[in-house]
Each structure stands twice: as structure tokens, then as C-alpha cells.
Amino acid sequence: MAIVLGPNRYGKAETRVVHVTRDGETHHLKDLNVSISLSGEMDEVHLTGDNAAVLPTDSQKNTVFAFARKHGIGEIEEFGLLLARHFVASQPTIRHARVEIEEYAWERHGPHSFVRSGQEVRTALVHSDGPGGQESVVSGLTDLVVLNSTGSEFHGFIRDEYTTLEPTDDRILATAVTARWRHRGTDAAWGRSYERARRCLLEAFAGTHSLSLQQTLYQMGRHVLAECGEICEVRLSMPNRHHFAVDLTPFGMDNDNEVFFAADRPYGLIEGTVLDDAAPAAPRAWS
């Protein structure tokens, strides 16, 4: 039996950086969580403990802060590309850089006062092999909580000896959307693209009379691809946040789909990919 070192990477996880742009009395705020992973000629550090090829993770953290000062922080995709390209171009032993960023939104409540905006988080995942090599950008969001109070049905499903769920032609449909979308290139207008994709997800969720959450998922991804030519693949994860009508008959009351119990566990988890099948594959993009 031959024992060998397999694929590996290392980096600095979850560097929290907040950047304030001072435009006179009006300030602008960017709040990010940046995770970096590097790979390349790293065999010796694993096999013999030789660190000659290793850029310390502390240096990676410091680079995030230095780049925030040097370049500012605009769109997170752009910031991720700057970092990823820097690590590969500046270190001969590093062949590939992966940068994942979460952005936390703040609402302005005065020239320099802000309130954290909800729980939705914007995301970006960047891969770069350096100048002349392959690159990919996956944008997205997590925890986009949406709900339709009607316009959702669920019936015609398999029934077996363990089935107790009753068919319905009027139910609440609620979910917390995690969506990621792959760009065809690395030169999109990131901010406008994100806003369009997010708007398309919401339009399709609201505009689809749903016979299943799977159907809604597909329509959401399809709408993004139809309206955003710079995007070639959408991956969605949508837990079904079940709402059950409460039986009020013990209290002499009816309940015409007005009072519900919101159950957080267990939940159905619906996941799927919608893609332009003519677009080239990018297997590294998602990992």
C-alpha cells in the first residue's frame, strides 16, 4: 500500500474587517468577514515540517487590513479578486487562491449613524490561479427570509403507511433562501448584477403560484438566468419553514387559515441547480 499526500489547502478564516470611508461629515460603512485558502507547492510542510513555502496565515490577515486601507472596499467580488490575484502573483509557491467573503449590511440613520440591516448576508466566493490562469466568481446571499401567505398548494404526493399529511390547496409557503450564482466572467458590474439577481429571486417567489417548493425554486433560478445574461448557473437551498393551521375547535372557534403554528424543526430541505447547459463548467467555483 502506498500512502501519499492528497489535495490540501490552508489559510486564515473569518478575518473581520470594517472599513469607514469618510466623505466629509457623511461616512460610508463596509463590514466584511473574509476567509482565505491557499494551495500550491505545499508538500514539504506536510511531509517534513519545512515552512519555506508557507505564507503565514497572520500575513494573510494583515493583507486584508492593508488592502482595505490601500484600495478601499467597493463590491465584495472586486475586493476578493484583488486579494486572490495578489497572493498568487506575489508568492511563487502559491498556485491557487480561494477567497470567500460575507458582507453585513447597515442602514444609514444619519451622516455617521447606522443600524444593522436584518439578517440577510451578501456573499462572494472567488478562485484565482493568477495571471493567465483560470478564475471564477460566485456571488450570492444567505438568510433571505420570504413568505407567501397564500398562493401555495401541495397535493398529489405519494402516500404510504406512514403518511399523515393531508393535501392542501391553500397553505403558507415560507423559506430562508441561500442562493449562489456563477458569473460567466470576472468583469461584471458586481453591484448592479447583485441587485438584479436578488430582485429576480424575489419577483419569482412572489409571482409563482406554487404547487411545490421545488417548482418555486426552479422558477426563481430560471428568472435569474433569463434576466441576467452575465450569470450562467444558480444554486439554491431552501428549507421549508412549515406553518401549520392551529386546531381551535376545542375552544369553539373556527380557523380559516388565519392562525398558524410556525415549526422550526424538523423541516423539509429543498436544493437544486438551474443552469445554462451551454456554459462551460467550472468545477472549482463552488468549493
Rank of each mutant, 00 (worst) to 15 (best):
R16C: 12
R16G: 11
V18Y: 04
V18I: 13
V20F: 14
V20R: 11
T21K: 15
G24L: 02
G24F: 04
H27Y: 10
H27R: 09
L29G: 05
L29D: 04
K30F: 00
K30N: 05
D31I: 06
D31F: 07
N33Q: 15
V34N: 10
V34R: 08
V34Y: 11
E41Q: 12
M42Q: 13
M42D: 11
V45T: 07
H46L: 02
D50L: 07
N51V: 10
A52G: 13
A52T: 14
V54A: 04
V54G: 02
V54P: 00
L55G: 00
L55N: 02
P56N: 08
T57H: 08
D58W: 10
S59P: 01
S59Y: 07
Q60M: 13
N62F: 09
T63C: 12
V64W: 02
F65T: 11
F65R: 13
F67I: 05
F67C: 06
A68Q: 09
K70F: 13
K70E: 15
H71N: 15
H71P: 03
H71G: 08
G74D: 11
G74C: 06
G74S: 12
G74L: 04
E75K: 07
I76V: 15
E77C: 12
E77Q: 14
E78I: 10
F79N: 01
F79P: 00
L81G: 01
L82Q: 15
L83P: 00
A84S: 15
R85M: 09
H86P: 03
H86N: 11
F87E: 02
V88F: 06
V88D: 03
A89Y: 09
P92L: 10
P92I: 09
T93Q: 12
T93V: 02
I94N: 01
R95L: 12
R95W: 04
R95S: 09
R98M: 11
R98G: 09
V99D: 00
I101R: 01
E102C: 05
E102R: 09
Y104S: 01
Y104G: 01
Y104I: 04
W106V: 01
E107G: 10
E107Y: 07
R108K: 14
G110Y: 02
G110P: 03
H112F: 13
S113K: 10
V115D: 09
R116I: 06
E120R: 15
R122E: 11
T123P: 06
L125C: 14
L125I: 11
H127R: 04
S128M: 08
G130N: 03
G130H: 03
G130L: 01
P131I: 05
P131K: 07
P131C: 07
G132R: 06
G132W: 07
G133K: 06
G133M: 06
G133S: 06
Q134G: 14
E135K: 06
E135V: 05
S136T: 09
V137Y: 04
V137C: 08
S139T: 05
G140W: 01
T142E: 12
D143S: 10
D143I: 00
D143Q: 12
V146M: 15
V146E: 07
L147E: 13
N148G: 08
N148W: 01
N148H: 10
